[in-house]
Simulated assay, not measured.
Amino acid sequence: MQKVYIYKKFERFWHWTQAALIFFLALTGFEVHGSFSFLGYEQAVESHRVAAWMLLILIAFSIFWHFTTGEWRQYIPTFSKLQAQIRYYTVGIFKGEPHPTRKSVRKKLNPLQALTYLGFKLVMAPLLVITGIVYMFYRTIDANNMVIVSDIPLEIVAFLHTLGAYLIIMFAIVHVYMTTTGHTPTSNIRAMLTGYEDLEDDSEQPLKDENKKEE
């Protein structure tokens, strides 16, 4: 085992800020939905709107970062060990079997993680973002109060937005659980806080030194 600098500063900032905004949006969104009362309806609406803009800005920066650094390649799924990975999480992990794949700086995600996160980025997140924007601008702020999406009933937009919220919450619950499946129950969380993780692949030593300079 060796300590490798695997998660860069922006990556950690983006991860934790996105998580905080998603949970805050869920809190205010379900209050707007009438599920409970905490901030009050008007304050919840305004807070939800502000947090939504903050998330959109963060997403824009993260897309730019992923493509300029080449980190987008991390989410390209491979299927060679997908079945073995599913078996590990459903059976092998409870029997103490070795992990079927190894994490490295170039391959931070196993096949199942890559496929899941790709689904998050291409399906769940766009569903929330698009329906949220349509919901926000369903009526323009002008004297005529003109409907700009007249062909889509507002009820359908609200339903799809709420569906996206439930999917994101389910993803978050599974994600939090999966963080406990590392070498120790807290090793994955610690790695996302410090950037360093204990890896088994000796070939990553040169990359470790290179990334320490980058830090």
Rank of each mutant, 00 (worst) to 15 (best):
I59A: 15
K81F: 10
I93R: 09
P185G: 12
L25Y: 09
A125W: 07
L112E: 00
F137P: 07
M1H: 02
Y117Q: 10
P185K: 06
V50L: 13
L118H: 13
F120G: 04
E46T: 14
H161S: 09
F79S: 03
Y5M: 01
M136S: 08
P77K: 04
V32I: 07
D151M: 03
V149T: 04
D151F: 04
T69L: 05
I57K: 12
Y138C: 13
Y7N: 00
L112N: 03
A165I: 04
F36N: 14
T90V: 05
E215C: 12
A143P: 09
A60R: 03
I173M: 13
K81Y: 07
L27K: 02
F67I: 08
K81N: 08
A114D: 02
L27P: 14
A172Y: 05
W65V: 07
E31Y: 13
N211L: 14
F64W: 15
I130K: 02
M54K: 00
D198Y: 05
L154Q: 13
V157L: 03
L207H: 12
I130N: 11
R49S: 03
V32W: 00
A172D: 09
L115F: 14
I93H: 10
E214R: 08
I57F: 15
A20I: 03
D142I: 06
I152P: 11
A172V: 15
G182Q: 06
F120R: 01
I189T: 05
Q85V: 05
A125I: 08
V176T: 10
I169M: 15
